[in-house]
Amino acid sequence: MRITCPVCGERSAAEFSYGGDATIEMPALDASPEAWNAAVYDRENPRGAHAEFWQHAQGCRCWLKVERDTLTHKISSVALVGKAAGKGRS
């Protein structure tokens, strides 16, 4: 698999670390145990389109949001997250 990092360009997936399900929003630190329980343990296992976090750990170290098809592994979009969102190569 290859991922096109918005900063570094197309690279082998071996340079990236998987960072989990990007559809899960982390609750506030003072949120209820139930909300945290849901965020930590409840996961869908979708067949098809899915959003994931990946870090370009052996490159720019940016965290990326990757839209990937779990069936075909086809990647439809890669975007920087957080402060850097919207920046990078287009």
Binding site: W63, V81, G82
Partner: peptide, 13 residues
């Protein structure tokens, strides 16, 4: 390091 970077990038930008 990875966890701290993750938190700053995705949870507390």
């Amino acid at each position: 390091m990875q966890k701290l970077e993750f938190l700053l990038a995705t949870v507390w930008p």
